[in-house]
């Protein structure tokens, strides 16, 4: 089990999981643990010779047992693919999988938050290149979500409105909009911390994956794919990113929390990365090298 240590200065939990030092690190394609097990080859995490979508408990979990869960979501058996290369229909099925796992993990006794995410690219620190995401079921509400939920609750008390609905409403002029249909919007928020940060959100108020209807799912899948295609066209190469789904916590927050997905690509140009350094890490103050209006226009044009 991990050790949870409380930082009284930031009032945040730090999770200590030393066994993660030994996790599989950049295996060759023939030794990929997320591929199906090929006849005559060593068994991978997935013993069958093929699969559609597979989810399993992380072998090197940050949370397990009574603390929570860490799951790996294998999007496809195709080692050389990516989330953005999946069909809209396949992404709709992935949404159903994310929803299933969110609901099931949210029912575990000590789980306070279910977080669906993907790290993509070596630049982000990915150690397995096979297309996959992860789900963390935390025994606490993580700090970023905690602050977001608190701000949303304050805004709701003060105005009676959802904070994120108001954020979306501010995008009426379209200047920071990357894509939009009648259900979802993709935009670079005015407060983006990364040059090509994008938020995807349902334009109608929804608290989490479980609140999306079939039309929402279809639009979500289509707009997610289009954003990822734009990302890979941006510098004519697979763009690394963190994809972070901000859902309501299990059993609460549906009224004031607005489900959305945040993307943080580390690139500020094709060959230059933004590193979190003195101001960001030591002081928590992000300095961003680009205006959201300009990067949104770039992405919109792709």
């Amino acid at each position: 089990m991990s050790e949870l240590r409380w930082d009284p200065l930031t009032e945040e939990w730090v999770t200590v999981a030393p066994w993660r030092q030994d996790r599989t690190y950049h295996p060759s394609a023939e030794h990929c643990p997320l591929c199906p097990t090929r006849p005559g080859m060593e068994e991978t995490e997935i013993p069958e010779p093929d699969y559609y979508i597979a989810v399993f408990e992380n072998r090197f979990p940050s949370y397990t047992g009574d603390q929570g869960r860490c799951e790996v979501v294998c999007y496809t058996p195709d080692h050389d693919s990516s989330l953005g290369e999946q069909s809209v229909d396949h992404i709709r099925d992935l949404i159903a999988v994310w929803r299933d796992r969110t609901t099931e993990l949210g029912r575990l006794a000590n789980v306070k938050y279910v977080y669906v995410f993907e790290n993509r690219g070596e630049e982000i620190g990915v150690t397995l290149s096979h297309p996959h995401g992860q789900i963390y079921a935390y025994p606490f509400v993580p700090p970023v979500l905690q602050r977001e939920l608190a701000a949303e609750a304050r805004h709701m008390r003060k105005t009676g409105r959802c904070l994120y609905c108001d954020v979306i409403d501010d995008e009426r002029d379209g200047i920071r909009t990357v894509l939009r249909d009648d259900r979802w919007i993709a935009f670079v928020p005015p407060f983006a911390r990364w040059p090509y940060e994008v938020h995807l959100a349902p334009t109608n108020h929804r608290g989490g994956l479980a609140d999306l209807d079939e039309e929402d799912d279809l639009s979500f899948a289509a707009i997610l794919k289009r954003v990822l295609q734009k990302y890979d066209r941006l510098f004519q190469k697979p763009l690394p990113y963190v994809m972070a789904m901000h859902q309501k916590p299990p059993g609460r927050g549906a009224r004031h929390h607005h489900f959305h997905v945040e993307f943080y690509p580390p690139n500020r140009t094709r060959d230059k990365l933004k590193y979190l350094a003195g101001s960001e890490l030591g002081a928590g103050a992000f300095i961003v090298d680009a205006r959201a209006e300009d990067t949104a226009a770039e992405l919109r044009a792709l």
Binding site: E45, I46, P47, E48, Y51, Y52, I53, A54, V55, F56, E57, R59, R92, D93, A96, V97, D100, A210, D211, L212, D213, E214
Partner: peptide, 30 residues
């Protein structure tokens, strides 16, 4: 809001791995 009558898009099959961890195969409902 989702309707309870909606037909699921995927069905799941849970198996136990040799070390006790679970593995879930999600298959497309045809």
């Amino acid at each position: 809001m989702r309707l309870a009558t909606e037909k699921p898009r995927v069905k799941k099959r849970v198996v136990k791995k040799a070390d006790g961890r679970y593995l879930i195969y999600f298959e497309k409902v045809s």
